[in-house]
């Protein structure tokens, strides 16, 4: 098994003071999968997310991505290994245009020294421009490329965040609560969009509080409760899992 997974989490723990936010979690994501990570509030989803993306180093355990141990790497190093992410509370660059926002994803994952910009650098500029336009097109934002990001609607900002991550041309995309704050129609559109990205060959992990979206589109669902993994199975099996239902307090969330 070892080395074949795209992402492999082995015994990862994270302690904050006396609280064990993530407790010896083992999980993995294979190439081409669309995996959901769910759990009730306070289950440790965000902490696990931060461990994966390099925002917080694990207290114990290892996290391997594309065969490399990424514990202790800075977020930008993890990102340049091919991991793209979005943020739960929408962190766009408000005073930059939509195009410029998305271009940052492309800039971040290409060589970024100043001398390319100083002395020509046409090739790099072309590559960045191409990637950016491709990501904008995928997310359906070409029409507003010149708009200031702050002027976009809430729903479109979600797509902007995803487009920015896509411009990184990631091998693995993690979406942090993408459906938060969206109504049912918007959530359905988003689900279709994520499916399209997945169909295009992208490996995706979806971190969600709400089960609806995850159960609808994911092939496999990992459930966290109180920092521990309590289930890891296809949606149907998870749906019937009594432990999961209990964790969700009766399971009538969906």
């Amino acid at each position: 098994m070892n080395g074949t997974h795209l992402l492999e989490i082995a015994g990862a723990s994270r302690r904050f003071g006396g609280v064990l936010a993530v407790d010896r979690v083992d999980a993995h994501v294979d190439e081409g999968e669309l995996v959901g990570l769910i759990g009730p509030n306070g289950a440790g989803k965000t902490t696990l997310f931060n461990l994966i993306s390099g925002f917080t180093p694990p207290s114990a355990g290892t996290i391997r991505f594309r065969g490399r141990t990424i514990n202790g790497l800075r977020p930008n190093q993890v990102a340049r290994l091919g991991m793209g992410r979005t943020f739960q509370n929408l962190r766009i660059f408000p005073n930059m245009s939509v195009f410029d926002n998305v271009s940052v994803g492309a800039v971040g994952t290409l060589p970024q020294g100043p001398f390319g910009a100083l002395f020509g650098g046409r090739d790099r500029a072309r590559r960045i421009s191409e990637r950016t336009w491709a990501a904008l097109e995928t997310a359906g934002l070409t029409g507003v490329a010149d708009e200031l990001a702050a002027n976009l609607s809430y729903g479109r900002r979600k797509y902007l965040e995803i487009a920015r991550a896509l411009a990184m041309e990631p091998a693995f995309l993690i979406l942090d609560e993408p459906a938060a704050g969206l109504n049912d129609t918007e959530t359905a559109d988003l689900a279709a969009f994520i499916r399209r990205l997945h169909a295009g060959g992208l490996t995706i992990m979806l971190v969600e509080h709400d089960m609806t979206l995850v159960m609808g589109i994911c092939q496999r669902v990992v459930v966290l409760a109180s920092g521990r993994k309590i289930a890891d199975a296809p949606p149907d099996a998870v749906r019937r899992d009594p432990g999961v239902l209990e964790a969700y307090l009766g399971g009538d969330e969906e």
Partner: peptide
């Protein structure tokens, strides 16, 4: 240029820029 855009992303939100691969 793209270099300026990377700098601007640091101004706007350097943690987020970091997550996009920008070596802040």
């Amino acid at each position: 240029s793209y270099y300026g855009n990377a700098l601007r992303s640091i101004r706007e939100d350097d943690q987020c820029a970091d997550a996009m691969g920008v070596r802040t």
